[in-house]
């Protein structure tokens, strides 16, 4: 036992006074390993976010339509935009041609469930996902450059090309989320539960 430890054991009052200094010394009595009892209700770190800050980043769109912005678009405008901004990577008409490897995924295809490749027509369960994804990530070489009207138009064009909506539909926040996707009925939530079963 070193001198300091002897002192501490002999003088409990001093132990209290020196609690900070002795925190790293070997002691018989174990301090509780968790500090959770001492945790404050709030630490007070961080700052309130302003409504403008939230609006600037809150671009997500939910399947129930929450988050769809103002604006509208149609198939005709979408076709022109697609040719200008998307065709170079996703193919002239979004269809995968045998033997041609596209830089981006095929976007248009057969809507029947088993057909390949996976496209918006046969594999996307929600139309809102299409809007959300293209607005945040496409075109790949200029992400975030499309206006809301442009995203509505390209969404209309791609849904029409996949035979999901008619050519005269004008898409906006009121009807986009109501579009029923052919693949919706195929999707199931994870039914694995852990445990011995192979699923």
């Amino acid at each position: 036992m070193n001198k300091k430890t002897v002192l501490i054991l002999a003088c409990p009052v001093m132990l209290l006074l020196m609690s900070l200094k002795t925190a790293f010394m070997p002691m018989k009595a174990q301090l509780p390993l968790t500090d959770s009892l001492k945790r404050p209700a709030k630490f007070g770190f961080g700052r309130p976010a302003t409504a403008q800050e939230i609006a600037a980043w809150d671009i997500d769109v939910r399947p129930d339509g929450k988050g769809l912005p103002a604006g509208q678009g149609d198939v005709k405008k979408g076709r022109v935009l697609y040719a200008q901004k998307c065709a170079m990577c996703h193919g002239v008409d979004g269809i995968e041609k045998p033997g041609v490897k596209l830089p981006g995924n095929a976007l248009v295809g057969d809507t029947s469930a088993t057909s390949k490749p996976k496209t918006i027509g046969n594999y996307w369960p929600y139309a809102t996902t299409l809007f959300d994804y293209m607005r945040r990530a496409m075109p790949y070489n200029m992400p975030g450059s499309l206006s809301n009207d442009e995203v509505y138009s390209i969404t209309a064009y791609l849904l029409n090309a996949n035979k999901i909506i008619k050519a005269d539909v004008v898409l906006d926040a009121k009807n986009l989320y109501k579009v029923v996707m052919p693949a919706k009925k195929l999707f199931i939530m994870d039914d694995r539960k852990g445990g011995p079963e192979i699923k």
Partner: peptide, 17 residues
């Protein structure tokens, strides 16, 4: 950079397509 609390899942591209 962002976390948003919600009553429903968002069905993003990476959890559907």
């Amino acid at each position: 950079r962002r976390i948003e609390l919600s009553e429903e899942p968002y069905m993003t591209r990476e959890e559907t397509s």
